[in-house]
């Protein structure tokens, strides 16, 4: 899937978050979006699926302008995209298993037996095979996030949008998740967008890096080029983040 965002503006009650943001997400590649906390990265991801609507500007998916699509028209597109929410965002009234099976069940994509197998398999990959019947409220933050990842994977999406996949997850698991992202991209050609603060994984994964500052993309390029950026905000971001990395 290919995404094209053009001159997007979005504000929430006078808080002008996105101010003319444009970016391209290439099919089958890993695009990493960096930016300070609260700069609108999550908001951007929600726009890519039509969950939020821009005040002006456009979002195109595979050449089709979805900006003004109705909910009904967006449904078939959304089935093809997986969004992994920053906080996991599991449905609290459903068990871990039911959360993961939700999409497959609602759309009747597979028979029930097959759904059980798929969900179990994905949860086992993420180290949660023994928590099928647990309620989300009883899970730790990192576990919730891993359930959310499993949920997105069960749908076999063509594109996956990761909202800070490794924050709140321990380093060994985080690097396993990085490998998973890389592998899916290489093997199946999943179009991937990763929003992260974790510079190590960002530079490991990225085919293309974008940096958001004050609602706009101020720097973009392949990781090697990006690292040599002369933009002062990028320099500051890289410097400060490496410090945090050292402390860990």
């Amino acid at each position: 899937m290919e995404f094209v965002v053009r001159d997007m503006h979005k504000s929430f009650n006078g808080n002008h978050v996105l101010r003319g943001l444009s970016l391209d997400i290439a099919e089958g590649k890993i695009t990493v979006v960096l930016g300070g906390s609260g700069c609108g990265k999550t908001v951007l991801l929600k726009h890519l699926m039509g969950i939020l609507k821009p005040d002006s500007g456009s979002v195109q998916i595979d050449g089709k302008d979805i900006t003004h699509y109705s909910e009904r028209e967006l449904l078939p597109i959304r089935i093809r995209i997986g969004l992994i929410f920053q906080g996991g965002a599991l449905l609290n009234s459903l068990s871990v298993f039911e959360n993961c099976a939700l999409g497959l069940r609602e759309h009747r994509l597979e028979p029930e037996k097959e759904i059980r197998r798929i969900v179990k398999e994905k949860l086992e990959i993420l180290g949660l095979g023994d928590r099928l019947n647990e309620r989300p409220a009883n899970l730790s933050g990192g576990m919730r996030k891993r359930v959310a990842i499993a949920r997105a994977l069960t749908m076999n999406p063509e594109a996956i949008l990761w909202d800070e996949p490794t924050t709140g997850i321990d380093p060994p698991r985080a690097s396993r998740i990085d490998n998973m992202i890389r592998e899916m991209s290489d093997r199946i050609g999943v179009t991937t967008v990763v929003v992260t603060h974790d510079l190590i994984s960002a530079f490991n994964l990225a085919d293309m890096v974008y940096f958001i500052h004050e609602g706009r993309i101020v720097e973009s390029g392949p990781p090697d080029e990006f690292r040599r950026s002369t933009n002062e905000h990028v320099r500051e971001f890289l410097r400060r983040r490496y410090d945090v990395g050292d402390e860990r």
Partner: peptide, 22 residues
């Protein structure tokens, strides 16, 4: 309301499930 403020409604929409229907 709780589902709306904890992004659960957005999750449904992201899975292509209509909150009205569900």
């Amino acid at each position: 309301g709780t589902m709306a403020v904890t992004e659960e409604i957005d999750v449904l929409r992201s899975l292509g499930i209509s909150p009205v229907r569900f």
